[in-house]
Design a protein around this nucleic acid. Structure first.
Lengths: 353, 353
DNA sequence: CTGAAAGCGCTTACAG
DNA sequence: CTGAAAGCGCTTACAG
């Protein structure tokens, strides 16, 4: 393996000088010397050992992204956003699919700590789990020992995300859109309540109801897993309780897609018999049939800005929190309730805070 | 930051002993001493500095995965497979979305080299680009200098993948299935020809035709990008040339999904007017409407076995190449051609080598 | 503007 | 079974 010593010998300078040129340190080097070093490094195809540098700097230019599952389109988009920002700065991105398992999440964080990852980005919602939170805090405190940056892109035990979206406002906007279509009995597939994000989305459902003067009926709220199969079982439970809903809003798109599949099996048509709306607007939402109405979340931007935030914190700044806007996207899965006199609405967009 | 010295002091042993216990080196340590060290490490929540260890070992337990785009479901699945195998061994996974851009790919590889990544996994097909290949080889040679493992999961300039699938056989099987349904004029959306994988898939198309004694007609083969928009433009070009095809086979699922969207705009019904088949069987294939017939590729397993291969190579073994089986999955998008006397086939599965 | 030297936090022959 | 010491490949005060 060629080292900085080889370059130094070839350029007839000291290793210190090579270091100063190659790590573009803030130290004057004569133009001639610089050129000799650059030339020698080029000839040798020299790539400095980032581990040696990291050992000295006490951290490696790597960002770890904690996701539920990299194959979940939500997290893939966010991760790509992180990666695009990271690449610009010579950082590499480690993906950690925790499956929302506290043990896995913790073990990933310890591994990131052992490698002195400069940044850790929590892409998904925090899990309601006091013991996990205690342990995670312990690790993050240790990571602050080497000045790592920590960023949250969703609500968590510590409160507000670093860069986030208005979950409650987004769901409330979708509720408003459904109510404007003529719906009154609107169910909510709330996902798992052990995720902080779902507290906010449920609050948005209730706010949307309250704004329209519709009474909240707990029978219309169903908890379940946060994926397609959760949506299917949620539909079953909803039907046991009340089959008179004309619309179903969901806490994310995967729930809506699973709900649709179950509804189809039950011969309940979307949107003829019941309207269906998701949240997040993952790419597949526009490709299923009928295409899914959803609340657009700028996922790539969330990841991109998340990394930028970390980067600024690493540079010693105190960047401020951000909340990104969401947007209601009405597609084929939502329509006025059967028997309604209103004309079918055309695709529309409503921007929210 | 607490170091091995802190643990040593607390346990009243030398740093060498701490190292031997914590890195479970092959060196005898008395049970009592071991217990004291473990206890001290636990109390201090000590996490060893992987950079110091990596500097000594000349590599870091990290696997870099070169993908086209982590938001492409094909690559997300493969990456998850790599991650699941990596986690078992305490390795972390870096995702590198190159967008199939030679410059980006090369810069990712150099970065992985600088961090002394123990393994690099090329998840997607190699690009036909002699200069890129030369540069990549140069980097990989340098990485061999620290005994990194390199794995290919798809055909590339160097030839066969390390762990791969039978691309030609898979497409040929799908062709057989279409021909059995009664199709004779079958187009092929071949994707970009600058990807080695598409040479094999096109060969499978030709072999399928030849096996059935159907003449090859170059007018029925359309090259394009490898994503949904490529599929849409390919349909346009196909229609300019020949609108009498009764089936369209595609080199991947995204092409098929894009083709379907364009066909719908042209009021050409699937499968009534034309049958449509993809390749890869990414998760969304079964969720679009009509559901897409495809060739199932064990993507997760591909990634999983890819990492296992790298791991065995790192351990000094000479693991052998593997070819994983594919399987034709017939869904709603394929049916007998209009006017055919054959009954619609029911969903079936055909396993191939 | 340039270089000699110490040191980051580990691991591992080597000696006992 | 245990420890002292050298060294992995860089960076950075310090001296000139």
């Amino acid at each position: 393996m060629t080292s900085i010593l080889d370059v130094a010998r070839r350029a007839h300078v000291s290793p210190a000088t090579v270091s100063r040129v190659l790590s573009d340190a803030n130290h004057a080097v004569s133009a001639a010397t610089r050129a000799r070093v650059l030339h020698a490094a080029e000839e040798l195809d020299f790539v400095p050992n980032a581990l040696a540098r990291g050992l000295l700097k006490s951290r490696l230019p790597i960002a770890g992204v904690i996701v539920h599952d990299i194959t979940d389109p939500y997290f893939a988009e966010v991760t790509r956003g992180v990666e695009d920002a990271a690449t610009r700065s010579g950082y590499l991105v480690i993906t950690c699919s925790s499956d929302r398992d506290p043990g896995r999440e913790l073990s990933y964080i310890r591994l990131l700590r052992s490698m002195r990852a400069a940044a850790v980005v929590f892409a998904g919602s925090g899990i309601v789990d006091a013991e996990l939170d205690r342990q995670v805090q312990r690790q993050l405190t240790a990571m602050r020992g080497y000045a790592a940056a920590v960023v949250h892109l969703s609500p968590h035990a510590g409160g507000e995300p670093t860069v986030g979206i208005d979950n409650a406002g987004g769901v409330a906007s979708m509720m408003r859109a459904l109510i404007e279509l003529g719906h009154q009995r609107i169910a909510f597939l709330a996902g798992p309540s052990n995720l902080y994000v779902n507290h906010e989305r449920l609050a948005g459902y209730r706010a949307g109801l309250a704004d329209a003067g519709i009474a909240y009926d707990p029978q219309l709220v169903v908890e379940s897993g946060f994926d397609a199969s959760g949506g299917a079982t949620a539909v079953d439970r909803l039907m046991e309780r009340d089959s008179n809903v004309t619309a179903i809003a969901c806490s994310n798109d995967l729930l809506a897609i699973g709900a649709h599949q179950r509804l189809a099996e039950l011969r309940i048509r979307v949107p003829d018999d019941v309207s269906l709306a998701g949240f997040d607007d993952i790419p597949v939402a526009s490709r299923v049939a009928p295409s899914l109405s959803s609340v657009r979340v700028p996922l790539h931007e969330l990841g991109y800005l998340g990394f930028r935030h970390a980067e600024r914190a690493l540079a010693g700044h105190r960047p401020r929190r951000r909340t990104l806007p969401t947007e209601v996207i009405l597609r084929e899965s939502t329509a006025p309730p059967a028997g309604s006199r209103r004309p079918p609405s055309e695709p529309s967009r409503l921007v929210t805070a």
